[in-house]
Nucleic acid binder design. Structure first.
Lengths: 231, 231
DNA sequence: ACCTGAACACCGTTCAAGT
DNA sequence: ACCTGAACACCGTTCAAGT
C-alpha cells in the first residue's frame, strides 16, 4: 500500500487500474461493441490495458475462454421475462428465443464462438433455467425437455452464426449470393428437384424463417419421444 | 516451350507442377487430412507448392473461398444412394444425413467454415438435389420441403461444428466438461428446472441424439405449414 | 500479361528474467 | 511470489517490381 515510486509518475497519466479478469472482459466487450469481436484480441486488449499480452494469461486461459466470458456477459441482455399479458408458455418461450437470437445477430462472430466453446457462465445458466421451465410446461417428458433445450439454442445460435455479412457493406455480400446464383444456374435435367423447388428455396424473410423454425422445433420436440426414456 | 534455363536446374528437383486452382485445392485437402484444416493456410500451401503466398491469389479469392472449395471436395464423399432394400424415403433420407454428418464429424473446423461461407459447388448441389427429392416424397408442400432442407443441413452442420475435441487428446476436453460441471454445481433453490432435468441434460449417446434430432425435424417440418404459402 | 518477392500489419502463446 | 519484455512461430493480403 505504501507508495514506492515517485508521485510524479502518478500525475503523468490517470491511475492505471489494477488488472483483473473482470476488467479484461469489460474491455473486451467495449472493443467488440465498437469494432467487432475480431478486434478483441489478446494483443489489442493488452495494449488497451497498458501492459504486455503475457500479463493477460494470469487471468484468462486463452482466447476461447475470453470469448466465452464475453458471450456470457452479452447473454445478460437476453430478456427472460415474458409479457405479463401473455400466459401461454409457447409465446413466452418464443419471446425468450427471439431475444436470444437478436442478441447473437448483433455479433455473429460471438455466435460462432458459442458453437465452439460451450458457455457455462451465470447468464447462460439463467437462460437454460428459464427455457427448461417454460418448455416443461408443454407436458413433454423430462428427456424431451432436456434434449429439446439443446436443439432450440443450437438452432438460434447456428442461424446467427450463418448470418455472416462480415462488414455489412454491400460489396462483399457474395457469400449467400453465390449460393443463390448457383441454385438458379442449375440445369433442370440434372437437378429437377432444385428446379421444382426454386422459388421456395430462397423465399421468406428472416423473421418468417425464424418463426417457422421455432414452430417446427417445438412441434417436433413435444411429439417425438426420446429413445429408451422411462417416462 | 523452349528451355531458357540450364537443364541442370531441371534435374535438381522433380518438375514443379504448374499452379492451378485444382492443384491448390488438392494440396489443401491433403494437408487437412494429414494435419487438420487449421494447417491448410495460404502460407503453408504456398510453401508446399514451392511458391510465394501471393501466387495463390491468382486462383483463389481468399481463405474463406479456399475452405469452401475444400468442403465441396469433401462433400463428394457423402453417400447419396440409399440401400436398395430400403424403400422408405424417411430411412433413405436418414442414411444421407448420417453420411453427411459423418463426413463433417471427421473435420469439425470444416463444419464451422460451412456455417460461415455457404457452399455452392457441384457436390453441394448434388446433395441438395437428393435431399429435396427424398423430402418431397413426404407429401409436404414445396415451401416446407425447401425450408426444411435448410433446417436439416443446418442441424447436422451445427452438431458437427460443436463437436470440438480440438486435438482429441483427453487433456483439453475442458470445454463440454466445464458446462457439465456448471450444470451439476447449480443451486437447487435458484435453478430448480436445471436440477429437475439434470440427468437428462447430459444423457444420451451422440448417435441417439442425432437420430432423435432427425426425427424431431422431419416430424416438425412435415407438420408445420410455411406462413403465407399458397399450396 | 502474368506472376511473385518482399513488405505491411497483424496474430496466440511461452518462458526466462526481472521486481 | 508475482508479473512481463521479448521472443518464437506463425498468420492473410497487397502491390510494386520483375520476367
Amino acid at each position: 500500500m505504501t507508495a514506492r515510486k515517485e508521485p510524479i509518475s502518478r500525475r503523468d497519466r490517470p491511475a492505471k487500474p489494477a488488472l483483473s479478469r473482470r476488467w479484461i472482459v469489460d474491455t473486451a466487450v467495449r472493443i467488440m461493441r465498437a469494432e467487432g469481436l475480431e478486434k478483441a484480441t489478446m494483443r489489442r486488449l493488452a495494449q488497451e490495458l497498458d501492459t504486455g499480452p503475457a500479463s493477460l494469461y494470469v487471468y484468462v486461459a486463452n482466447t476461447a475462454e475470453l470469448h466465452a466470458a464475453v458471450l456470457d456477459r452479452l447473454l445478460g441482455e437476453v430478456d427472460l421475462t415474458g409479457r405479463d399479458s401473455e400466459q401461454d408458455w409457447r409465446e413466452q418461450l418464443r419471446a425468450v428465443m427471439v431475444s436470444y437470437t437478436r442478441v447473437l445477430f448483433e455479433h455473429p462472430p460471438l455466435a460462432r464462438a458459442a458453437l465452439v466453446a460451450r458457455p457455462s457462465g451465470e447468464n447462460y445458466l439463467r437462460l437454460v433455467e428459464r427455457v427448461l421451465d417454460l418448455l416443461s410446461r408443454s407436458g413433454a417428458s423430462r428427456e424431451q425437455v432436456a434434449w429439446g433445450l439443446d436443439k432450440l439454442l443450437q438452432d438460434a445460435t447456428a442461424t446467427a452464426a450463418e448470418h455472416a455479412t462480415q462488414g455489412h457493406d454491400p460489396t462483399s455480400e457474395d457469400d449467400w449470393d453465390a449460393t443463390v446464383r448457383a441454385l438458379h444456374a442449375v440445369d433442370a435435367t440434372t437437378h429437377p428437384a432444385i428446379t421444382a423447388h426454386m422459388p421456395a428455396l430462397i423465399s421468406g424473410t428472416m423473421p418468417d424463417r425464424i418463426r417457422w423454425s421455432f414452430d417446427v422445433l417445438i412441434y417436433g420436440i413435444t411429439h417425438t419421444p426420446v429413445p429408451g426414456a422411462t417416462d
